[in-house]
Simulated assay, not measured.
Amino acid sequence: MFSEKRYARLKWACRRGMLELDVLLMPFVESGFHELNDGEQEEFERLLTCDDPDLFAWFMGHQTCEDPSLNKMVQHILSRVKV
C-alpha cells in the first residue's frame, strides 16, 4: 500500500515534459492507480522511471517495450483511455 507521501511523489512523477504523456499518465494515476494491486502499483512506479522518449514510443505504438511487465502496464493504461 502506498503512503500518501509516496503517492504524492508518484503523482508528481506523472508530470512529464511531453503533453502526450501528461494526458495519459495524470488521469490514470488519479482514477486508475488505486484499482491496481500492490504488484501492479510497483510496476507503475517503475514505469515512471523510464525516459520520456521511450514512454512516448511505447504509448504511441512506435515501439514495443521489451520488458513484459512494463509492456503489460503500458497496455493496461492504453486500454483505459481508448473509447
Rank of each mutant, 00 (worst) to 15 (best):
E42G: 08
V74W: 12
D54R: 09
C65S: 08
E20Q: 12
K5V: 10
G17R: 06
R6M: 05
N71R: 14
V74M: 15
F44M: 02
E45R: 02
S3Q: 03
D52N: 13
L19V: 15
S3Y: 00
D38V: 07
P53D: 03
K5Y: 13
G39A: 10
D67E: 05
R16W: 07
F44C: 06
G61Y: 09
G17Q: 08
G17K: 08
Q75V: 10
R9A: 15
R16P: 11
W58H: 04
C65P: 00
E35L: 02
M60W: 12
D52C: 04
H34W: 07
M1L: 06
V29F: 08
F28T: 01
F44V: 00
A13C: 10
H62A: 00
C65K: 14
Y7F: 13
E35Y: 04
V29C: 05
L21Y: 08
D51E: 13
M73T: 12
G17D: 07
P27W: 14
H62F: 00
S3N: 01
R80M: 12
P27Y: 13
F44P: 02
R80W: 08
S79H: 04
D67F: 07
T64I: 13
M1E: 02
G32P: 03
L78V: 03
D51Y: 09
D38S: 10
T64K: 04
N37E: 07
F28S: 02
S69L: 13
Q41E: 12
T49C: 03
C65F: 06
C14L: 08
K11N: 04
T49P: 06
K11D: 09
F44D: 04
L24G: 09
L36D: 09
C14Q: 00
K11C: 10
L24E: 02
L55P: 10
P53V: 01
T49A: 06
N71Q: 15
F44G: 02
V83F: 07
F56D: 00
L36R: 09
E42D: 12
A13M: 13
L47K: 13
E35H: 02
E40H: 00
L25W: 05
E43S: 07
L55I: 05
R15Y: 14
V81K: 15
D52K: 07
Q63Y: 13
F44A: 03
L25R: 01
